[in-house]
Design a protein around this nucleic acid. Structure first.
Lengths: 185, 185
DNA sequence: CGCCGAGTTGAACTGAATCAAGAAACGTGG
DNA sequence: CCACGTTTCTTGATTCAGTTCAACTCGGCG
């Protein structure tokens, strides 16, 4: 089930999945394909079936990874999707991938037609909140090394699949520091 | 309107406020009163009318402020409130305050009876998400001094009303560092 | 008056950034 | 299949922001 890793399954009704799936479009796309481009409003919510995507943005001259999405997880430029503002994020594929997306208007319409589905949007956001709150705590209290270990524990496959520089920026350190962390263990 | 600072007003219907207000209990409580105690499940969602509260928790021997709530903003141990798990947070008043709260069961029942109100829960969470994402960016990219300046710009009154140590822990630095930042300007 | 919490200041230390140079791996075209 | 350029990764030397530890000041307040 595509929602497995969204921690929603147990709370969500089957008919929602039917409705939702009907609105989704399936695609296979190659590595490096840009799913969303900065400066535009993000109109899609993606679910990755196979492959890997990352959301990133530019800070000064640097390229900062804000989010990774592996199989069975979702990705979008969420602030833009929610607020309908231009996004600072790009979303790109890091591997040849297959995915589905729903677009904003369809999603919005689904919520209007069947307002009881608002519940799932709420639950989804609650789960995001829990994740992101944990990330703040990580930044406040854990060393570079500990943050790296937590990440690789949570997503073991990332180490092999993603550039060191992307991982480093995700946990808020330079790639030199991450290289040194990897070296001594 | 109590929801002013929640950025909800323009999107929320009047009858919701009626329903919601009917479920709320008003209280006046003195400074240092504990609104919620760690180790228990948080059953209340508070809105501060007057005064000031903070949520904090213990990390090693330290007391870390996770959130401040001034007039017209809300506070709860949100992870516990959402997940129905024991909370690591305490919530205490830092000034004599007047506030209202709604309890979890009433809130849940309201959502069940009138599921279209789910929308407001979603919007509330969306707003929280935007805030918290900004906080991550602050921690990643801004110096201690810049974080302090952003906070005092956002909540000018905090400087006078709250201990230096609480502010320091909120922005992720020691109180010595914050003292030095204040000294040189 | 003496204590206590809050804030300040100094000196030494440290984790991570920065700058700079190489080494390895990768892929593209001949 | 090799050669070359590009991107990715490593390693070293230096610097710096912020921590830690410790001592000291200041303003209430019982």
């Amino acid at each position: 089930m595509i929602f497995d890793n969204l921690n929603l399954s147990d709370q969500i009704s089957a008919d929602f999945f039917d409705d939702f799936s009907k609105l989704m479009t399936f695609q296979e796309l190659p590595s490096k394909h840009l799913l969303h481009c900065e400066g535009t409003i993000c109109n899609h919510f993606f679910i990755i079936h196979k492959g890997l995507a990352r959301a990133y943005y530019h800070k000064d001259t640097k390229d900062i990874t804000a989010h990774f999405a592996i199989e069975k997880t979702s990705i979008t430029a969420i602030d833009s999707f929610i607020q309908r503002k231009k996004s600072r994020y790009n979303i790109e594929l890091l591997e040849d991938s297959s995915l589905s997306y729903i677009n904003y208007d369809d999603w919005k319409k689904l919520l209007e037609d069947k307002p009881h589905y608002e519940k799932y949007a709420r639950i989804f956001l609650e789960n995001i909140y829990i994740d992101i709150a944990e990330r703040i705590e990580d930044l406040l209290f854990y060393s570079a090394k500990e943050r790296y270990e937590k990440l690789t524990h949570k997503f073991p496959s990332l180490q092999q699949r993603v550039n060191l520089g992307h991982i480093a920026s995700y946990i808020g350190i330079t790639q030199e520091t991450l290289s040194r962390i990897r070296a001594k263990k």
